[in-house]
Write a protein that binds this DNA or RNA. Structure first.
Length: 585
DNA sequence: AGAAAGATGAACGGTTTG
DNA sequence: CAAACCGTTCATCTTTCT
C-alpha cells in the first residue's frame, strides 16, 4: 500500500490512472474553466447562467464535477424532480466517457437506448473541462499541494496523510499515486469515497474512477439479472412479510447467506435507514456498502409498534436469539389500561411507526367531540375519520371517547429503552419525542447483533456513528456484551448527554468517547483512536433519514439531500476503518 | 416591562406498495 | 384504491434573561 500503482483491477485501472495523472500534471498550471469559458474560483458557485429555479440544481451537479452541458442534458431527460435519476444518468455518461470500450458495451447490452447517441456528442466539452481543470492561488508549498489534492477531489485528510507519508517534497503524481493505491490496492471492488454534494470540489477526474467502477458493476448486474425489459436497474424489492433473514417465532428463516468478498470483516458493520425510501436509494446504499443485500425488517415482529427499516450488515445471521424479557407484542399487552376503553370498531392490535411528532391536544379534543354524541357506536363515516386520525397519529384510548398520544416513557418502552432513558437533564418533552422517533428499535437491533456475544466474550470496541440516544449501545448492553471502548459520534448535544448519562448510570467499565460531527472524523483521528485500543470490532450507524422519509413533504430529496447525504460519511468512515485495519494486520 | 429564547401546535402532499 | 410514512416550517404562546 505504498507508492505502487499496480492495481488489483488490472489494465483498465493502470491505464486510467496513468492517463489521469498525466492529464493532471500536464494541466496543472491552467485554471478551472467551464465550457462557456467562465473561470471558476473555488467551490460551488459555478455557473450563474441558468437563472431559473434550475440553477441551484445545476450548480449542485456542477459542484460534483460534472460539466454544465451534461447536467443540463441529464436534467432535461429526467426532469428536475428526480435528482437520483439525474445522478444516475450523469454517472452513465461519465462512465461511458471514461472507458473507450464502454461505448460498445453499453451499445450492445444496455437495454434503455433512448439516450444513446444523444449524449455521445457531448464528450468534447467534457474533455476540455477536465483538461483545463486546475488550481488557482497556491500559497505555501505544503498548502499548495494540499490544495491541489483537495481540488482534485480528495479529502483534506487523505491529502494530509499522503503528504505526511510521502514527504513534503514528493510530487503531486506521487501523492495521488499514494492515495489511489491506498484505496485501490486493498480490495478490487472498492471504489472511491464519493464525497457527494456537501463538498463541491469533487473533481471530474476522480469522479471518473468512481463512475467507471459504477458502470462496470451496473453492466455486470445487468447481464445477470435483467432480461426483462424496462428502465430502472435492479430496484431493491421489499419483502412481504418484512421479516428480513428471519425474526423470532417465524417459520421462514434464511439459514445462510454468502457475503461479497469485499464485505467481509473485520470490522463488522451495521447500517440502518428507513425501508420506504425513494426508489433507487437502497440500490445505491447497497452498492456503496460492498454490495451487501439489505435486510428489511418491520419491528412489529419484535414489539407492539411497526418500524419498517432496512439494515445492511455483514454480521452472521445464524444462531440469532432475541432479548429477554420479550417485549409486549400487542397494544393491550403494552398498555393494559387501554383495553377498558378500546371500542370494538377499532381493530388495531399494533401501533404504527413511532415518529418524531405526536398528535396535539386539539386533535384529541376534536375526536372526542366527534364521537361523544353516539353511544359507543358512531356511524361508519365517523368511525373512519377517527380511525384514520388514530392511525396517523398513533393515538390510544385512555378514557370514554378519549384518545391520546403516547407519553415519552411509553415510547421508550416500545422501543426497548429503559424507562426515563430520555428524561431529565434539561430535555424537553418535544425533544424526547424527536430523539425517540429517530431511534432504533432496540429489540430488533439486538436480535441482529446477538450473534456477536459468542464471538466477543471479552467485549467489543464500538464505533457508533449517528448514535442518537444510543440504541446500539443499549442493545449491546442488554445482550450482555461488554462495551470496552465506545466512540460515539452524534451531532445533537441533547442526545450526547442522554448517552453519557446512560453510560454513567449503567456503571460501564469501558471508555466512552463522544464526538459531535462525523464530518470531522478523519483518518488521523481514527488512527489515533484505533491505535490506542487496537481497532473497532463493530461500526454501527443509522444515517439521517430526513430526506428519505415519507413524512417529509418538503425536502424528500433522496440520498443527495442535505442531511441524508451524510450516508456517504458513514461509508467514508467505514472504508477508512477497513483500510486502517487491513494495513495494521 | 420588554426583548430574546424556547416550547408547543397546526398546516403542510406525495411517493411507494400491495 | 387504501394505507403508511425516523418531517419541516411558521405562528403563537410561554419562559427566561436583561
Amino acid at each position: 500500500m505504498d507508492g505502487d500503482t499496480s492495481g488489483v483491477e488490472g489494465d483498465n485501472w493502470n491505464t486510467d490512472d496513468e492517463l489521469e495523472i498525466d492529464n493532471f500534471s500536464l494541466s496543472s498550471n491552467s485554471s478551472l474553466t467551464l465550457p462557456n469559458g467562465e473561470a471558476v474560483a473555488c467551490s460551488g458557485e459555478a455557473s450563474s447562467s441558468a437563472g431559473s429555479s434550475n440553477s441551484k440544481l445545476i450548480d449542485h451537479f456542477i459542484g460534483m464535477g460534472f460539466s454544465e452541458k451534461m447536467v443540463a442534458k441529464a436534467i432535461q431527460e429526467n426532469g428536475k424532480e428526480n435528482t437520483d435519476s439525474i445522478l444516475e444518468t450523469l454517472l452513465t455518461y461519465s462512465a461511458l466517457e471514461s472507458s473507450p470500450q464502454g461505448q460498445q458495451h453499453i451499445d450492445s447490452d444496455h437495454c434503455s437506448l433512448e439516450c444513446e447517441g444523444s449524449f455521445l456528442d457531448d464528450f468534447s466539452d467534457v474533455d476540455s473541462f477536465s483538461d483545463n481543470e486546475e488550481i488557482t492561488n497556491p500559497v505555501s508549498d505544503e498548502d499548495e499541494k494540499l490544495l491541489s489534492l483537495v481540488k482534485m477531489g480528495y479529502t483534506r485528510d487523505e491529502a494530509s496523510i499522503a503528504i505526511e507519508r510521502c514527504g513534503l517534497d514528493s510530487s503531486l503524481v506521487e501523492l495521488t499515486d499514494f492515495i489511489t493505491a491506498a484505496q485501490m490496492a486493498k480490495v478490487a471492488d472498492v471504489h472511491f469515497p464519493l464525497e457527494d454534494k456537501p463538498r463541491p470540489n469533487l473533481s471530474y477526474k476522480k469522479r471518473k474512477h468512481f463512475d467507471y467502477e459504477m458502470w462496470k458493476r451496473k453492466k455486470q448486474r445487468g447481464l445477470e439479472k435483467r432480461l426483462l425489459h424496462d428502465d430502472d436497474d435492479e430496484i431493491v424489492r421489499l419483502p412481504n412479510p418484512m421479516i428480513g433473514f428471519g425474526v423470532p417465532n417465524e417459520m421462514c428463516q434464511t439459514i445462510h447467506r454468502t457475503l461479497p468478498e469485499a464485505a467481509i470483516g473485520p470490522p463488522f458493520f451495521y447500517y440502518e435507514n428507513v425501508a420506504l425510501a425513494p426508489k433507487g436509494v437502497w440500490t445505491t446504499i447497497s452498492r456503496f456498502l460492498y454490495d451487501v443485500e439489505p435486510e428489511f425488517v418491520d419491528s412489529k415482529y419484535f414489539c407492539a409498534a411497526a418500524r419498517k427499516r432496512g439494515y445492511v450488515h455483514n454480521i452472521p445471521i445464524h444462531d440469532r436469539y432475541p432479548l429477554v424479557p420479550l417485549p409486549p407484542s400487542t397494544i393491550f399487552e403494552a398498555f393494559p389500561l387501554t383495553k377498558k376503553w378500546w371500542p370494538s370498531w377499532d381493530p388495531r392490535t399494533k401501533l404504527n411507526c413511532l415518529q418524531t411528532c405526536v398528535g396535539s391536544a386539539k386533535l384529541t379534543e376534536r375526536i372526542r367531540k366527534a364521537i361523544e354524541d353516539y353511544d359507543g357506536e358512531p356511524p361508519l363515516h365517523v368511525q373512519k375519520y377517527v380511525l384514520d386520525e388514530c392511525r396517523k397519529w398513533n393515538l390510544v384510548w385512555v378514557g370514554r371517547n378519549k384518545v391520546a398520544p403516547l407519553e415519552p416513557d411509553e415510547v421508550e418502552k416500545l422501543l426497548g429503552f429503559p424507562t426515563n432513558h430520555t428524561r431529565g437533564g434539561g430535555i424537553s418533552r418535544t425533544d424526547r419525542f424527536k430523539s425517540l422517533g429517530n431511534s432504533f428499535q432496540v429489540d430488533t437491533v439486538a436480535y441482529h447483533l446477538s450473534v456477536l456475544k459468542a464471538m466477543f466474550p471479552n467485549g467489543i470496541n464500538l464505533l457508533s456513528l449517528f448514535s442518537g440516544i444510543g440504541g446500539a449501545e443499549v442493545a449491546l448492553h442488554r445482550l450482555g456484551i461488554p462495551l470496552k471502548n465506545v466512540v460515539s459520534v452524534e451531532i445533537s448535544e441533547v442526545n450526547r448527554n442522554i448517552v453519557r448519562s446512560w453510560w454513567e448510570q449503567t456503571n460501564q467499565r469501558g471508555n466512552l468517547i463522544d464526538l459531535a460531527d462525523v464530518q470531522q472524523l478523519n483518518g488521523d483521528r481514527l488512527e489515533e483512536l484505533m491505535g490506542s485500543f487496537g481497532g473497532f470490532d463493530l461500526i454501527v450507524g443509522g444515517s439521517p433519514c430526513n430526506n428519505l422519509a415519507g413524512s417529509n413533504r418538503l425536502h424528500r430529496d433522496g440520498l443527495g439531500g442535505k442531511e441524508s447525504s451524510l450516508f456517504y460519511d458513514y461509508f467514508r468512515i467505514l472504508d477508512l476503518v477497513k483500510c486502517i485495519m487491513n494495513k495494521t494486520q
